[in-house]
Design a protein around this nucleic acid. Structure first.
Length: 655
RNA sequence: GCCCCCAUCGUCUAGAGGCCUAGGACAUCGGCUUUUCAAGCCGGCAACAGGGGUUCGAAUCCCCUUGGGGGUACCA
């Protein structure tokens, strides 16, 4: 209708008065079909708009409320524009570009309602997402980000978040690592709806109200088997327990000729690759012609040969439609017949993943960008098996600040070089004293942003705000300083009850004897250390409370600088302080403060030259809570004991 | 080598052809506060990788270059 007509004329037929002004003045301005310029009543230049008719897709203007311009496809985004108000000189709609115009035009009207935006052009009855780690260790922080985004989509849409363990590589599987991953996820508060059933947590629960990782009534005790059991309607959720399922589909492919046994040995293939490399040619597996028959393959296996099954990659280009990256096409010559079953009978990742995604009715696949090149394989497999294709979104990668990949090997390297190992896996951050709230908030911002200036988000707020279309394409670097700032923030935002629970978790995972202290004491410590960056800082600042008076170690540098210098002035101060403290009738904040003030006055000294000697004497170093807090926490007896001990062990004075 | 993806302050990012003299946050640098370490408050510095093109107008669209990343397995 109007749109098409406008397209032909190259001028927008506006139907609202405000817009007609622009049209009337159009002739006065420089304009042509491709770039009209609009003037306001006074003839001032106001706007705007680019119509790129030449390249075949319109673009248009939507200068004021309720109408839009020329591009037929533009109509599709009208719902997005509803209610938009423009003021001032600019009449450019904020969120309408050709790019989006096109995307929206391809979606059925009304398809962007209460779902996850671009990822649900065809809203399924239920969104089902999954995280599919292979059990090789603790959960990597990058994996945590992938989990988070999946989880957010599931929670936002009321869909299901499935956890599936991809343990098809028997060499790489690490014992106990499934439980570790489960623990990490639980600690982060990212509960799965279907998947392995977690064993009881090994440390005190960190979340105030952790969502429990049991679905489908998985109330029983963990199975005594090596692997935890699964709960959910599409289980088991361990690929190693699904071998018969893969075999069934494999036979189907073999029988219809879509796959074949490939007889080459690993050595032969390696030699062929090496030869291609030596000849500076790119290697591509060449399908035997004709390929071995199924009977030949089975006979070879029966004879003990280690052979694989390959999938016949169709000889055509394959385009991946990615909700973050757009369309990515791989040409036929880049696609080769790939292995779907290894010689040990296990499926490869590609095969198991496709079969399970289909059987588990996964609708959206969000995974790391390292999987982008795998997707054409998966698409072809889905087509051959008659499976639907889920929507895909490949997430940008997370790197170290120096641009290297964040790898757990970084930890070993640092240790070997005598540096403090960096936190790489979720568990490392837990041990280091971070709050899961801060981790979740921080990693959410790695690749995603809400579009406004907000940065602090609780999990609930993330669920509300997160949209896949706001995930960027660029790789991010992991800025530990910023994480620290987020942790500092969250430590002051969570309730004291929650903070205490998290602190207890920190103490428990670190096997700290302090975990035995009672709530009141730990609460007081936490309060005195307010402003701390991590729980580890709490220990550096208040750790002196938890050692025996006789075992307190004095930092020689602190003693020298604060007590012994200036002819032992610090010690002199201490003697006076000790004397006064002994006579202090009441161990209260006010009384202590008054006492310290009095010592300052009588000595004509600044607060610092009284408080610091005291701090060193009772804590052994220069770092502790505010001095009154410190004395209160320590109590009268221990304070006096430590002051006496400090004076009796007096170091030689320095000038 | 070949294929693919990406490119705004040091870092995470906002940016949807004219709201840009490019915004926010972290870091950093000043200042305030001060009893140490933190925290807090105020302020400053700081970016469109380069080159072409399209356009009246480009951070934004196109091309090339450069840089970064990924893939090129019987790993996932």
């Amino acid at each position: 209708m109007v749109g098409q007509q406008a397209h032909d004329e190259g001028v927008s037929p506006f139907d609202e008065p405000a817009l007609q002004v622009g049209v009337e003045h159009l002739s006065a301005a420089h304009h042509n079909a491709a770039s009209p310029v609009f003037l306001d009543e006074r003839g001032d230049f106001v706007a705007v708009g680019v119509l790129d008719f030449a390249s075949g897709h319109g673009g248009a203007l939507r200068p004021t409320r309720g109408t839009y311009g020329t591009c037929p496809t533009f109509r599709a985004i009208a719902p997005l524009q509803a209610g938009a108000v423009h003021s001032g000189r600019s009449l450019i709609p904020r969120r309408a570009t050709l790019r989006h115009c096109r995307a929206a035009a391809n979606s059925p009207p009304g398809g962007s309602g209460d779902n996850i935006g671009r990822m649900s052009a065809n809203p399924p009855t239920q969104v089902r997402v999954r995280f599919a780690p292979s059990p090789t260790g603790y959960l990597h922080i990058g994996g945590a980000r992938t989990v988070l985004f999946n989880w957010l989509i599931a929670r936002r849409t009321g869909g299901a978040f499935v956890l599936r363990i991809e343990d098809t590589d028997q060499q790489r599987n690490v014992a106990d690592s499934v439980q570790k991953i489960l623990d990490d996820l639980t600690w982060l508060g990212l509960a799965w709806d279907e998947g392995p059933v977690a064993a009881p947590a090994r440390a005190a629960p960190a979340r105030a109200a952790p969502e429990l990782a049991v679905a489908g009534g998985g109330s029983g005790a963990p199975a005594p088997a090596a692997l935890p059991s699964s709960a959910g309607p599409h289980g088991p959720y361990f690929q190693s327990q699904r071998l018969p399922i893969y075999d069934r589909y494999l036979d189907q492919l073999l029988e219809c000729g879509a796959a074949y046994y490939a007889l080459e040995s690993t050595e032969e293939l390696e030699a062929a690759r090496a030869a291609a490399k030596a000849a500076r040619q790119s290697y591509k597996y060449r399908r035997p012609d004709p390929p071995p028959t199924v009977a030949e393959g089975r006979a070879a296996r029966a004879a003990g040969r280690l052979i694989v099954v390959r999938f016949k990659m169709p000889d055509r280009d394959i385009t991946v439609t990615d909700d973050i990256l757009g369309n990515v096409t791989l040409t036929a010559d880049q696609l080769e017949d790939f292995v779907i079953q290894k010689s040990d009978g296990f499926p490869t990742y590609h095969f198991a993943c496709v079969v399970d995604d289909a059987l588990m009715q996964i609708t959206h696949v969000l995974r790391g960008q390292e999987h982008l090149m795998n997707t054409p394989k998966h698409l072809a497999l889905q087509r051959a098996l008659g499976f639907p294709t889920p929507r895909y979104a490949h997430l940008p990668v997370i790197f170290n600040m120096d641009g290297s990949k964040m790898s757990k090997r970084d930890k070993e390297k640092a240790l070997a070089e005598g540096r403090r190992p960096p936190e790489i896996e979720v568990h490392d951050f837990r041990l280091a004293g971070y709050l899961p709230e801060a981790i979740v908030n921080f990693i959410a911002l790695l690749g995603w942003s809400p579009g406004d200036n907000r940065e602090y988000f609780s999990a609930a707020e993330l669920i509300e705000c997160f949209r896949i279309e706001r995930v960027g394409k660029t790789n991010a670097r992991f800025d530990r300083e910023k994480l620290l700032a987020f942790n500092t923030h969250w430590a002051t935002r969570v309730t004291s009850r929650r903070l205490l629970a998290a602190f207890r978790d920190f103490l428990a995972v670190n096997h700290s004897p302090i975990a035995a202290r009672d709530d009141a004491e730990l609460d007081a410590v936490l309060a005195a250390c307010a402003g701390f960056r991590t729980f580890a800082d709490v220990l550096t600042k208040a750790g002196f409370l938890f050692v025996d008076d006789a075992a307190l170690v004095y930092d020689p540098k602190a003693v020298r600088k604060v007590l012994a210098k200036n002819g032992g002035d610090g010690y002199a101060t201490l003697e006076q302080v000790l004397e006064a403290l002994r006579r202090l009738p009441e161990w209260s904040p006010a009384a202590l403060q008054e006492l310290i003030d009095e010592v300052c006055r009588s000595r004509g000294a600044a607060m610092g030259s009284v408080a610091q000697p005291m701090r060193v004497a009772v804590s052994g170093g220069t770092i502790s809570p505010a001095i009154v807090e410190t004395l209160l926490l320590l109590g009268r007896e221990r304070t006096l004991t430590r002051l006496e001990r400090c004076l009796s062990e007096r170091a030689p004075a320095e000038a």
